[in-house]
Design a binder for these strands. Structure first.
Lengths: 205, 205
DNA sequence: ATTTAATTGTGAAATTAATAACGATTGTGG
DNA sequence: CCACAATCGTTATTAATTTCACAATTAAAT
């Protein structure tokens, strides 16, 4: 499988999401221009991205939505992603309950917390285990990604547990940088930085 | 004020965060190489970014942390950002309680929900108002940014209210694209896309 | 059947971002 | 005081990404 730039992948996932919505609206075809309007990108950008995956559009008609969607998914969404959560606090619970995950594409398969009072309980069918059980439980879940939603001061030890459990992907919601082996991929989501950088955008105009 | 690429701004905010931590550890100086280790960037990248803001480093010693921090903040963090929240559900409540916001840089000043049972209550000193009150209440709060944490199907109407309230920045947590005037800045945080793109990274190796 | 207009797909140009190379500076140790 | 080694800052180079320009295609209209 050819590999595409990170940015292309992100945009492609956005196209898939958009195509899903258009399908629900009963549309059959969509042009690059329409997609551009919806996604706030340019039509050329969209055609170029799509051209990575083959010649799928038809002049004068645009793209057949169902077909385009299935071709894009072939590259960026082969099968369901299984996720485990570390830290069932405010943010962690919200993530478990996040409606965007209640589809066939992402499945939360287990949660872990140090608080003994939470261990054994369930949130929305997701069972909560103790941190100590992680290296035993995680492999059984076939998870691919671990979420760090613990207090910032425990992010590194949580990352270590995630790595020890055999996961190769981490989404880190704490405002810290974690150290992991170089074959483990980390995505940092620092809400403060998101807000502050948006604020900079506003002020620069 | 000169304007810098979005990416430079994001990295700079990351530097500020890192410098904060180093200060807490009692460090006085830091080299570009050390910063690179921590942030997972390259030393050249860091020196280049910093050079945008002036000559502040000293050969053989590196950067004086306190000085560097204050210079960077001058460009990316002039004053506190005030934020209002729309949608006090699971995710919204978690955002209000998010510890990363309990500092002097970001301040949540009001929340809005359609649920009359929530209106009038408070979460962590943040008062919850009804949606109808937004255009009246928001201007009084001096907020700059609005958060959309409502169910996806109401994202557009919420965006319209935010725009009508005079805000020029929106952080959109719903998996939808919203339409806003072009002088309003939007940052989309689609958790599904974050997870799926990370999954692609993993599989591509 | 022919023309027309809309739309895709793509190679080239332009822009933006990252990396490398290296000179300049300055603490430090002899 | 001098040589050395570490580190910054900057210019040049390379790489990645986006935009442009336009040829190719084809549904629709006549």
């Amino acid at each position: 499988m050819k590999k595409f730039p990170q940015k292309t992948v992100t945009r492609t996932l956005l196209y898939v999401r958009t195509l899903d919505n258009l399908l629900e609206q009963g549309k059959k075809f969509v042009s690059s221009w329409e997609l551009a309007e919806i996604t706030d990108l340019t039509d050329v950008q969209i055609r170029k991205d799509i051209s990575n995956f083959g010649r799928v559009g038809r002049p004068r008609l645009g793209y057949e939505i169902r077909k385009l969607k299935s071709i894009l998914e072939e590259y960026v969404l082969q099968h369901t992603v299984h996720v485990v959560l570390f830290g069932v606090g405010n943010l962690g619970s919200a993530i478990i309950r996040y409606p965007g995950f209640h589809n066939e594409k992402i499945k939360m398969v287990a949660a872990f917390d140090v608080d003994k009072k939470k261990v054994g309980k369930k949130i929305r069918d997701v069972k909560i285990y103790s941190f100590d059980e992680a290296t035993k439980v995680v492999p059984k879940t076939h998870a691919e990604i671990g979420i760090i939603a613990v207090p910032a001061e425990h992010s590194q030890e949580t990352a270590d547990i995630i790595v020890a459990s055999g996961l190769r992907g981490i989404v880190n919601f704490t405002p810290t940088t974690i150290n992991v082996p170089k074959d483990v991929f980390v995505k940092n989501i620092d809400l403060s930085i998101e807000f502050l950088s948006l604020f900079c955008d506003i002020q620069r105009t």
